[in-house]
Nucleic acid binder design. Structure first.
Lengths: 173, 173
DNA sequence: CCGTTATTGAAACAGTCGTACCATATACTG
DNA sequence: CAGTATATGGTACGACTGTTTCAATAACGG
């Protein structure tokens, strides 16, 4: 299970095939279906595991509670844009793209975005317009995702880092 | 060629297969390979055509030259987030995701991002820090792409529209 | 009109895919 | 120890993939 997630993170979701996955796990495709039922259920399980990892790892690397919104944002960006997170980021974009074509396979994809509001709503309270402000977290996460899109495409770390600086600057004034 | 692009925009890139495409075009897979050489070359041609369409359609729908940066941004968002552009947006995300796994297939993907700077650098000159400021367009496009990611996932038009309003607000002050 | 070239069709090739079937082996329970 | 449930290996099925091969037709230039 854990190693299956490792494999998907390393090789991507799009071209995932049972036989190579089984070979890498020293098993047979027969056993994968025996354990998970079908490929789609295996994928769901792997995605759940990947999300679980991402959530816990992020929680352990965030600035302390009392930090400012800007410090939180910089912490999130530093964490998610680090090269070690590249497989995880790639998986996010792969799932999103596949979900656009096959929404039926990802019934709770919207939650993956709205869930962040509970997590981030409090951390960005000093720049939010109110206690139930979902718009500010939406914008902040959009900046992060958009810059990730740019960074993963161009590899231009300097420019994307500076764009985040610019956004922080806008938030201060 | 045009109809091949229509088909890819309608059915997505990921599961593209020669036989169904040929059937939809009243041809044979034999002829597709005869005309394009290989599937990969066909995909490249289709992507080039799609990009051409996107560029010309956007150019024809932008506010006039003298408009403010905010008006331009709102124009871009209104255009790209319109439901009619959904297939085009989906294709962008599909190409990006596939490019993360197979960068070798998309040699000039980075240009697809940096090319915007020439187009948008001038339109955002009143909020840019200088004539060669690439950071401001980077941030603006990141907001647009990030909000598109959100909108295409959650379908929450109201929240994403308001997040763009919030960004415009930040830009003004 | 004939020979050459371009265009098209049908079928086959070699491979991969997810999955199902059948048998065997192991483990657990009574 | 007998018998049943659980786990695993091997294999085959049918469908699909991009691509190639062979053959036939159409078009065109001399």
């Amino acid at each position: 299970m854990a190693r299956a997630t490792d494999y998907v993170l390393a090789h991507g979701l799009a071209g995932l095939s049972l036989r190579p996955l089984a070979a890498a796990l020293d098993t047979s495709p027969r056993m994968l279906l025996y354990d998970f039922g079908s490929k789609q259920e295996l994928v769901s399980a792997v995605l759940a595991e990947a999300r679980r990892r991402g959530a816990t790892r992020l929680a352990g690397n965030l600035p302390p509670e009392a930090a400012s919104a800007e410090e939180h944002l910089r912490g999130i960006w530093a964490w998610i844009s680090a090269p070690e997170r590249a497989p995880y980021v790639r998986l996010i974009f792969e799932v999103h793209a596949d979900g656009l074509v096959h929404p039926e396979n990802y019934p709770n994809q919207a939650e993956a975005i709205t869930n962040w509001f509970d997590t981030l709503g409090a951390t960005f309270r000093d720049i939010a317009t109110g206690p139930d402000d979902t718009v500010t977290p939406t914008l902040v996460m959009a900046v992060v995702r958009g810059l990730l899109f740019d960074l993963t495409t161009t590899g231009d770390r300097l420019r994307t880092d500076r764009a985040l600086d610019r956004f922080c600057e806008l938030l201060r004034h």
